[in-house]
């Protein structure tokens, strides 16, 4: 081998090693964050943490039950608003999205996916808080719904597109009208994938904080009313982490661990739903 060939080989090996190291470096923060979450969060989690509401500053103990329930209500309502729109738009893209409107919707969905959530929060404030004069959980739900629609639309489109064309033809040849072909055969076949997409979107909005700042606002007490301020887990974490008290910092870690666990659970459920589709029946 000539010296040049050896040099080239060495360079190739070195660069292979370098991208490996870079890849490891990219994954490292995740490992660190998870380790810290477990290390600092787990010790503060007990039964009370899940079933109690906050205690006055200075006392220790207390929990985030109100924030967990609040998050569930806000995210659940967001799903009620956002999922039908997102899934409908996604089916449109897959079934009729070949023309100019289809291109536009697809493009806008991708662009909206990258729109800062804080901007959407401001809009929700303008439309739903300012006119009524007080903060509300419903405004937060609408903001989160606006964030989830583009995501759900695109994943739904992809999943519906995966359904083989032959199934559609078979249904049409049986005398199914187009709309029933679409709903009862094509969309029904894609349901597992659509659920996966929805779960991923829920995992994403469940962790959103910025759009809640001037909509749900936060609440120290237990509240079940959509028309009033409500606490949510991410908001609670933000308040605790940026506050001055040791006790709060401890609770911030614990809440962050719980939020992370919830998000991971949703992500796992999403994977599981997909596996059902590809696995044996």
């Amino acid at each position: 081998m000539s010296a040049r060939a050896i040099r080239r080989r060495i360079l190739s090996a070195a660069m292979t090693g370098l991208v490996g190291v870079l890849c490891a470096a990219a994954v490292l923060p995740l490992v660190l964050i998870f380790a810290d979450l477990l290390h600092k969060g787990a010790t503060s989690i007990d039964w009370n943490f899940f079933v109690r509401t906050p205690v006055p500053i200075g006392q220790s103990g207390g929990g985030v039950a109100h924030a967990i329930v609040g998050s569930a209500i806000i995210v659940g309502t967001a799903c009620l608003i956002g999922l039908p729109i997102g899934i409908g738009a996604g089916i449109y893209l897959a079934e009729y999205g070949t023309g100019r409107l289809g291109w536009t919707v697809r493009f806008v969905a991708d662009v909206l996916n990258g729109t800062p959530s804080i901007v959407i929060g401001i809009l929700a404030w303008t439309w739903f808080v300012r006119p009524v004069g007080h903060f509300s959980a419903l405004a937060a739900s609408v903001a989160l719904a606006m964030l989830m629609v583009p995501m759900v639309a695109r994943t739904t489109e992809e999943m519906v597109r995966l359904v083989p064309h032959s199934l559609r033809e078979a249904a049409l040849a049986l005398g199914y009208p187009r709309w029933r072909t679409s709903l009862q055969v094509v969309v029904r076949t894609a349901v597992a994938g659509i659920v996966t997409g929805a779960l991923v979107a829920v995992a994403r909005i469940a962790g959103e904080t910025a759009p809640l700042l001037f909509t749900a606002l936060g609440n120290l007490n237990f509240s079940l009313s959509l028309g009033h301020p409500m606490q949510a887990l991410p908001l609670q974490i933000f308040t605790y982490a940026t506050g001055p008290f040791e006790e709060w910092h401890r609770l911030a870690w614990a809440s962050a661990l719980v939020l992370m666990a919830l998000v991971l659970l949703l992500a796992m459920a999403a994977r599981w739903a997909t596996r059902q589709r590809y696995g044996t029946r």
Partner: peptide, 20 residues
């Protein structure tokens, strides 16, 4: 046309059972 397809059945090259 939907009524036509109900009177004229069709089977394709690849089996297409509805998977769900």
């Amino acid at each position: 046309p939907v009524a036509v397809r109900r009177r004229i059945g069709m089977v394709f090259q690849r089996p297409t059972p509805f998977p769900t």
